[in-house]
C-alpha cells in the first residue's frame, strides 16, 4: 500500500475495519421486515391489545431506527466519537420536544 493510501490511525482505533458478514446483514434485514409486518398487521387487523397510538408507532419506529443505525450504519463497531455525537444530538432533540410539548400543554 502506498503511503498516501494508509488511513490515519487514532489512539483507541482498532486496526483495520470491522467487516460485517453478508449473513449478519441479512439477519438484521429479516428482523426489520418482521417488525414492519407486525406493525402493519396490528394496525390493519385492528388488534386492540395495545392502542396503536402515536406513542406506540414512534416507539416501534425508534426501535427499527436504532437497529439501522447500530448495524447497517456500523455505529456499534465504529469509533466511539460518533456514538457520543449522536447521543448529544438526540438529547438536543429531546429538549426541543419537551419544550414544545410544555408550551402547547400549558396554554
Amino acid at each position: 500500500m502506498a503511503e498516501k493510501d494508509k488511513p490515519r490511525i487514532l489512539p483507541g482505533d482498532k486496526t483495520g475495519p470491522h467487516i460485517v458478514s453478508y449473513r449478519f446483514h441479512f439477519g438484521i434485514w429479516l428482523g426489520l421486515i418482521i417488525l414492519t409486518a407486525m406493525t402493519v398487521l396490528v394496525s390493519v387487523m385492528g388488534i386492540s391489545l395495545i392502542a396503536f397510538s402515536v406513542i406506540t408507532a414512534l416507539f416501534i419506529a425508534s426501535a427499527k431506527a436504532w437497529v439501522v443505525a447500530s448495524y447497517f450504519m456500523h455505529l456499534k463497531w465504529d469509533h466511539i466519537t460518533y456514538r457520543i455525537m449522536g447521543g448529544i444530538v438526540m438529547l438536543l432533540f429531546l429538549v426541543f420536544i419537551i419544550l414544545t410539548g410544555i408550551d402547547y400543554l400549558t396554554r
Binding site: T39, S43, A57, L58, A65, A69, M73, H74
Partner: peptide, 26 residues
C-alpha cells in the same frame, strides 16, 4: 462509498418514521 451508504440509511430511517405516522395510526 461508506458515506453514501450512511446517507442512504438516513433516508431509510426517515421513512421508517413517516410510514407508521401517516399510514398506520388508525
Amino acid at each position: 462509498l461508506e458515506n453514501s451508504g450512511l446517507y442512504w440509511h438516513l433516508v431509510d430511517i426517515i421513512w421508517i418514521f413517516l410510514f407508521p405516522l401517516f399510514y398506520l395510526i388508525h
